[in-house]
């Protein structure tokens, strides 16, 4: 099922029985509606670009409790969030929500690509997932002030954003260093 896996045969008895329940708790409520028709996979950019895991296969792997195999594969982070699967699913499974739920599982296991951790760090530190250091010059080149009127220009607003993040699951999980959360600094990602 998972091409990189050493184990060619997946032992169904080793499936994690609570996995579906966890996915449902983390936002994949409709997972059991899936009948594996494959409609979502027909148009999924991940499937079309050749990633080993994508909506349809992810759902089946969750059904069977293939938790470890899924955590070993980072395909889910390549999801474009295009939501075409959710638009066309005849069963209202909302496959993209299952991808998000699986990412939430992975975050709790620290099984996250460095790039995504960087995005979270950047969100916390500067208030934007994407931030380019030399953007001030670029902005001035087209006649705009160095900083946009966002949290970048309003330190108090950044504090507000950080206060929200402190009250979110991000704080409990500790995947990125946050003010007052020393534990995370020592974590290897």
């Amino acid at each position: 099922m998972i091409s990189e896996s050493e184990n060619i045969v997946f032992n169904l008895s080793e499936g994690e029985p609570r996995f579906v329940a966890q996915i449902k708790e983390l936002g994949g409520e409709e997972i059991l509606e899936c009948i594996q028709c494959g409609k979502c996979a027909a148009v999924c950019p991940m499937a079309l670009a050749g990633f080993p895991i994508f909506n349809k296969k992810l759902i089946q792997a969750i059904f069977l409790g293939a938790r470890e195999a899924l955590l070993d594969d980072s395909s889910i982070w390549a999801c474009q969030s295009c939501n075409r699967c959710t638009e066309i699913c005849p069963r209202d499974v909302r496959p993209f929500e299952i991808i998000l739920a699986m990412r939430r599982v992975a975050v709790r296991e620290f099984a996250v690509p460095a790039m995504s951790v960087e995005g979270l760090k950047s969100l916390y530190d500067v208030g934007h997932a994407v931030y380019l250091k030399d953007s001030g010059q670029t902005r001035q080149k087209v006649g705009l002030p160095e900083k946009p009127p966002s949290v970048i220009a309003f330190p108090k607003a950044l504090k507000e954003l950080q206060a929200i993040l402190h009250q979110s699951a991000l704080w409990e999980i500790g995947i990125i260093p946050m003010e007052g959360n020393e534990m995370a600094d020592t974590c290897e990602v």
């Binding site: 594996q36 028709c37 494959g38 409609k39 979502c40 996979a41 027909a42 148009v43 999924c44 499937a47 079309l48 349809k56 075409r84 066309i88 005849p90």
Partner: peptide, 27 residues
Amino acid sequence: RGRVGAVDQLPGDGLRVRAYDVDMDTP
């Protein structure tokens, strides 16, 4: 085996059918 996800209209009167072949495991 695999439900069609999209039918695109091609120039002229043709159609492109896009599915995922579950048995081949490929789009």
